[in-house]
Write a protein that binds this DNA or RNA. Sequence first.
DNA 1: TTTAAGATATGATATTTGTCATATATTGAC
DNA 2: GTCAATATATGACAAATATCATATCTTAAA
Lengths: 238, 238
Amino acid sequence: MKNLIQLQQKNCLECALKGHSVFSVLSDEQIEKINHHKSCAIYKKGQYLFTQFSRPVGLFCIYTGKIKLSTIGTDGKEQIIRLAKDGDIIGYRALMTEEHHRLSAIALEDSSVCLIEKDFFVKLAFQEPQLSKRVFKLISEDLRKAEEQIVSLSQKNVRERIAEALLFLKATYGLEADGKTLSVRLSREDFADYIGTSTESVIRLLSELNSSGIIELVGKKILINDIERLVRTANIIV
Amino acid sequence: MKNLIQLQQKNCLECALKGHSVFSVLSDEQIEKINHHKSCAIYKKGQYLFTQFSRPVGLFCIYTGKIKLSTIGTDGKEQIIRLAKDGDIIGYRALMTEEHHRLSAIALEDSSVCLIEKDFFVKLAFQEPQLSKRVFKLISEDLRKAEEQIVSLSQKNVRERIAEALLFLKATYGLEADGKTLSVRLSREDFADYIGTSTESVIRLLSELNSSGIIELVGKKILINDIERLVRTANIIV
DNA sequence: TTTAAGATATGATATTTGTCATATATTGAC
DNA sequence: GTCAATATATGACAAATATCATATCTTAAA
C-alpha cells in the first residue's frame, strides 16, 4: 500500500528516557514490553501518517521529525490545528475515545515514527493511572493551545499573529546551531493555513518584518534577529 | 464573602438520571454518596462561579441555567470560549490536572449550581474507569469544539460566523415553546466576544438577517424564521 | 416616575485584509 | 542541465471589517 520505508526498530526504553515522552512514567519493564508491540517507519515529507475520518490503527510516536495536524474547512481550505515534534505522540485522542481521527497528520519533513498497536496502548493507558494522568494532561495542553489560538484569531491582526507564530515555531522546534535560524521550514501556504490568512498576506508581512530588521529571510530560511521587537510585534504581555 | 443564595440540596440521583450527566455511568449507591459531598447555590446573572487563574475548589454541576466560560485577551477584551447548560459539569479540567482555572465562569442568567468537593470528585474520577472515560470524552468534545471554532475563525467571514453562532445557540440551548425563539439571550457584546468581532458588526449583521427575514428581532428576543436559509448563510455542508 | 447608565442602532470613514494579475525565483522530474 | 511546475514576491484594487460619532431605546436605580 503505502510506500513506507521500514526502519530498524528503535528501543522504546532509550526513547522514553531521553525525553519528555508520556511513557517516562512507566517502569522499565513496562516500557520494554512496548518494544514488542510496535513498528517503526520513515515518512517522507508530505506523506500522511493518518487521515481525517479514518479509524485509528495505533498510536504514533515521533522519534524524529516534524508533523502537522490539519483539517479541511468548508471551502476545501486546509487549517493547521497543531504541530508535533520529536517525543510527541499523536492520534491518541481517537484511540482513547474510540472515534475516528478528526485531523490528518502529514510529515513536514522526513520523519522517523513508531506505531504502537492500538489495543496494547489503550489497555495500558486505562490500566496505569500514571499514564492516564499523563494522557489527560496531554489533551488538556492541546485544549489550552487551541483556546489560545481562538483568542489570537479573534483579537489579533495578521501582523501580530505572524509574529506570534514565529515565536511559537521557535519555542516548539527551536533554532539551528547559529542560534538564529528557525529549525522548521514551513511553506508560506502552510504558514497561512496555520495563522488563518492568505498566502499573499504572509509573504507581504514576512517581507515587511524582514525590511524592518526583525527577521531575515535567506532563501527558505527564516532568521530571528530581534526577539524583543518580535515579541512587541506579537503584542504579548511578558 | 460572595452573596450566594444557598439552595435546598438537590438530589444527585434524580439529577444524574434525568439527563446526560457524566455521573450516569455510576451505580445508584455511588451517586447517593455524592449527595454528602456537595452543596447547592443560586448564582445570579453576572455572578462568577470561578475566575481565571484561581485554584479550583470543586466541581460545578449546572442544575439549571446558562454559563459562559471566557478569558481576557491581551488588550483586555473578553473572549467567550465555551457555553455551558443544564447537566454540564464545568471546572473539571483544572481539577484533573491540578492546575489553576484557565477560564472564568459567569452566569448568563440566574442559575442553580451544585459544587462537589474537590478531593471527593478527583478520587472518584481516577478510581472509576467508567467515569474516567466519560471525563476524557468530555474534554475531547471541548477540544473538538475549540478546533471547529479555530477553523471557523480562520476561514469564515463575520456573517457566516454569526449565522453559525445562531445555529449553535439553537442546538445548545434550544427554543422556547413557540418553536422559534432562542432560549438564550446574549447581549450583542457577548455575541461579539464569542464570534470574534466588534459589537457594531454583530448589531449590523443581525439587523441585516432581520431585514432579509431569516431571523426576527423582537425586543431582546431572537426568533429563527428560516433555518434553511440560516444554514446556507452559515456556509455549512449538511 | 424620573433620570442616568447602559445597550442597541445606524451612518461615515479609515484600516485591514483578500483577491487578482503578473513577475521572478526555486525546485523537482526527466 | 533543461524545462515545467510550483513557490515566492509585489502591485493594484476591491471587499470586509473596525472605529468613531451620534441617536435612540431600554433598564435599573434613586
